[in-house]
Write a protein that binds this DNA or RNA. Structure first.
Length: 336
DNA sequence: CGTCTGACTGCCC
DNA sequence: TGGGCAGCCAGAC
């Protein structure tokens, strides 16, 4: 099961649950934390719970002492802004404090916050419905009213939407859908694993529609994607880009591949450089730290610096010698 | 459509 | 080893 929770200080918690067919199985409103806890404790242990709120105050890893979270910085770079999380509970707005408390309830119920590593069930994740809508529609909202925009984004992704769903309910459903992408290998994590990541659907999840059901909402409007500019990317998907992203996504933790490996695997044997340029633009959409050059060195332009890339590799158990990884030991080639 | 720009590579000292 | 250099290819304008 996949649960999504929308947090509001004054309106309480909206909870949505999707089944494996992405059908809305439950849509409930919990007035307070106790009521939410009741629902949470009823969830199967292998559920992924997505929450529209940060799990804890910022640890300030980003922005040279500015105190931002890395996730906020990274999202800003792709043109998505969100409410910055203060570094202390006291300084946080009420809805955020409600969120912190909710994560505690979740942890006690067996859904500890997901920090890093491979996606797994039985965890809670942080999501941002606005970002999910944006990935799904492929564009910023523009002049479309928020409620319509949200519905259009979810329309083909989730079965069983009701006509009268409120914005809070839609946000909870968007969160639950994002939990589904997380558990089904279609997700991206923005941020630093040490302070937690914000999970969003990968942009190629856009293509996969759920089969429409009889009670499916039909809106008659579509959010029309327009060509993205360099600054507000969520870039479009070319076949080459798709192949590269899918391939990189398959590199297991603890292994690496070279740009040339990826190019060859994607049918463009001499396109290593093109792989590099692509990855540079969308590094947050794939485990790009697992890409090294043909001599085993990290990428000079890795976000946070090449040292950061090596740290991430080391965290996966890869030995680093002389600032490079031993390809004979760690190079991954497809086929078991 | 040409032109330009890279998180690349292989080859030659 | 390590640096210089010329190809290379997809994407952005």
């Amino acid at each position: 099961m996949y649960a999504g929770i929308d947090v509001s200080a004054t309106r309480g918690f909206d909870v949505a649950v999707l089944d494996d067919d992405r059908r809305v199985a439950l849509l409930a409103k919990a007035r307070d934390l106790d009521a939410a806890g009741l629902i949470i404790r009823g969830l199967p242990p292998e559920t992924v719970v997505a929450v529209d709120a940060p799990p804890a105050p910022s640890r300030g890893f980003a922005g040279a002492g500015k105190g931002y979270r890395v996730a906020e910085q990274e999202l800003h770079r792709v043109g998505v802004s969100l409410y910055p999380v203060p570094s202390s509970t006291e300084a946080s707005p009420a809805w955020m404090r409600a969120g912190f408390a909710l994560y505690e309830v979740l942890e006690k119920a067996g859904f500890p916050p997901f920090l890093e590593g491979a996606a797994r069930r039985g965890v809670s994740i942080e999501v941002y419905p606005h970002l999910t809508y944006r990935v799904l529609t492929g564009d910023a909202r523009g002049r479309i009213p928020k409620l319509e925009w949200s519905r259009a984004a979810l329309r083909r992704k989730v079965a069983g939407l009701t006509r009268d769903a409120t914005q809070d309910a839609l946000d909870a459903i968007a969160a639950a859908y994002t939990a589904w992408t997380f558990a089904n290998d279609r997700w991206v994590g923005y941020g630093d694993p040490r302070e937690g990541v914000i999970v969003a659907p990968r942009s190629d999840a856009r293509d996969e529609a759920v089969p429409p059901g009889p009670d499916q909402l039909s809106l008659g409007i579509e959010a029309t994607p327009r060509a993205a500019t360099a600054d507000e990317t969520i870039p479009r998907q070319t076949p080459f880009a798709q192949r590269v992203m899918r391939y990189v996504a398959r590199i297991p933790p603890g292994r690496v591949a070279t740009y040339g490996d990826v190019a060859r695997a994607c049918g463009t044997p001499t396109g290593a450089r093109a792989v590099g340029t692509l990855v540079a633009r969308r590094s947050f959409e794939m485990p790009s730290h697992r890409l090294v050059d043909a001599t085993g060195r990290p990428s000079p332009a890795y976000p946070g610096g090449p040292e950061r890339q090596l740290e991430r590799l080391a965290a996966e158990g890869i030995a680093i010698a002389n600032g490079r990884v031993d390809l004979n030991l760690h190079r991954w080639r497809e086929q078991t």
